[in-house]
Simulated scan of single mutants.
Amino acid sequence: MTSSFESTGKILKEAEDFLTLYIQETGLSEDWLHKRLNDIKFAGSYNPTTEELVFGAKVAWRNSNRCIGRLFWKSLHVIDERNLQTAEEIFHALIRHIRYATNDGRIRPAITIFKQQRVRIWNDQLIRYAGYEMSEGLIGDPYSIPFTKVCMELGWRGAGTPFDILPLVIQVGDSKPSLFEIPEEIVLEVNIRHPQYKQISQLNLKWYAVPIVSNMKLSIGGVEFKAAPFNGWYMGTEIGARNFADVNRYHLLPKVAEAIGLDTNSNMTLWKDRALVELNAAVLHSFKEDGVSIVDHHTAAQQFQLFEKQEEQEGRKVTGNWSWLIPPMSPATTHIFHKPIENLIKKPNYFYQNRPF
């Protein structure tokens, strides 16, 4: 759906549902709602005001079933950039987002929203490492191989290291996508080391500070914003137990086990578990020592429990995707593992969309 709906009835339904929620939570009157809906009906489309956009983006985070960090939904900083027209203007807005969110390591949750239907950002995240298929094997992040090939077809040439920052690819309307390099100086990265096992630092690992998701669309009142990159801060296991450890990502557990002297000849030694714990400990230690915001999965689960209590006090039912909410390491040590939760989708919300390439 876009601002051009199939029928006035369809326009009013989602817009009315959203704006009814808006007045309920902001204290506006029924008279205001009736006038607003009459304006939408007359216009034949719904174009959220900046105030409605801010509210909708925050509630979309509150409704995000896969996110364990929803306690902080009210703190989301919403940047309305729907007036921008060119790929270059959009690129500069994305750079501003990266700078604002990074904040010298004191990460700030933010979302930048561009004109509905007109803008697509081809990157899965604004900052991500490239992946290469080389004669000597895979280098970098295997997940990024398809997009890396796209960037190279558009003229980009990476250095061929395990941690090359991919460029931004921006498309406006039906025009050819434009490629922009991200200035190195604005990308904050953390070198990974362990407080006890110095051998882990010899693996020369690092990770970027801010996960800015850019492949999801934001749906508010029936209007879909296909370019609305947003970020919180990392939970440690996202890096240590997934990006670094997954066999289809950097697949580092064997190297970590070897570095710290674990017996990998038998599963009975639990070498994978031990390597996983130490790798995650290294991630948390490194981010903390560098003053970069991060949360461990136990604290994140406690924060989610507080979010549940706050929502209950407000009379709202918490929904969630259990398989995403449980952390990928020691999930049974959190209350979420033992608690059923309904995976009911509510709007406003963020939704995955097909890759444009």
Rank of each mutant, 00 (worst) to 15 (best):
S219Q: 11
V187C: 08
F230M: 12
R274H: 13
Q196L: 10
R249Q: 14
G232Y: 13
P229Q: 05
D273A: 08
I182V: 14
K206A: 00
P229S: 06
A245T: 11
P195Y: 08
V292A: 02
M235A: 03
S219I: 12
S175A: 15
K198G: 04
V295A: 04
K226T: 15
H285F: 15
Y197L: 00
G261P: 12
P183V: 07
T299E: 09
L262G: 15
A257W: 10
Y208N: 05
Q171W: 12
Q202R: 12
A227Y: 10
I192G: 05
N265W: 08
P183W: 12
A282G: 07
S178K: 11
D273Q: 07
A227V: 11
A209L: 04
L205C: 02
L188P: 00
A209N: 01
E184I: 01
I294W: 03
I239S: 06
R242Q: 09
L262M: 14
V223R: 08
K272W: 07
V295S: 04
F225M: 07
A259E: 07
G261R: 08
L270Q: 12
G261E: 13
Y234F: 15
R249E: 15
L205T: 03
V213I: 13
T299A: 04
T299P: 01
L205Q: 10
G173R: 10
T237N: 01
